[in-house]
Amino acid sequence: MKILLVEDEKGLSASIQSYLKMSGHICELAADYQSATEKINLYKYDCALIDINLPDGSGLDLIKKLKADNETTGVIIISARDTIDDRIKGLDLGADDYLVKPFDLAELNARIKSLFRRISFSGSNIIEVGELSIYPDEFKVKLGDELFDLTKKEYNLLMFFVSNANRVLAKETIAEHLWGDNIDMADSYDFVYAHIKNLRKKLQEKGLHDYIQTIYGIGYKFQTI
């Protein structure tokens, strides 16, 4: 997938680029409005990550331009501002998602994948993970022809793991993904653990390989290789 990252903070853009490369994406950088405009004019991207506050312009204008040139390019705003007004302004211009800094790279990756699924393959979208087939448009998982019964939370958890396969996911990251960032509940880690235990049990019951590894002191990893 070809991604354009417009972010003036070099430290952050380098990190995002590394993480996205690990996930097999091609990520190009633009540090300001000027170079971003040039890149948009020259190339076609599947997705653009745009910071609103740029040294020489507003990311909002870039979104307008992107959406005018190519409707199918997905746009995710990455901004330090998190008021409802800012979100509405961005989403009204056609942005598909809004991430508030500081965010988790795994969360960003999951959002990109979800966005990409939404905009590129309408309808006939299947993710194969070993013997499992995930139908994200229907929120269903199948094992061969058999429906693999999961609760909504377990499904979300599996999708998050699959989006960040072979990455270490901190339990806070998983909790935040499942319940949103304003649920800073101390007990949420226990719930993450409980959900993971259930998911693992269901996978084992079907005689599947134990994909979920516990990484001591930090969280979990969905191992597919």
């Binding site: 430290g11 952050l12 990190s15 995002i16 500081p102 965010f103 988790d104």
Partner: peptide, 8 residues
């Protein structure tokens, strides 16, 4: 922003 850098 710097916090985002540290976190990343």
């Amino acid at each position: 922003t710097p916090l985002a850098v540290i976190k990343s």
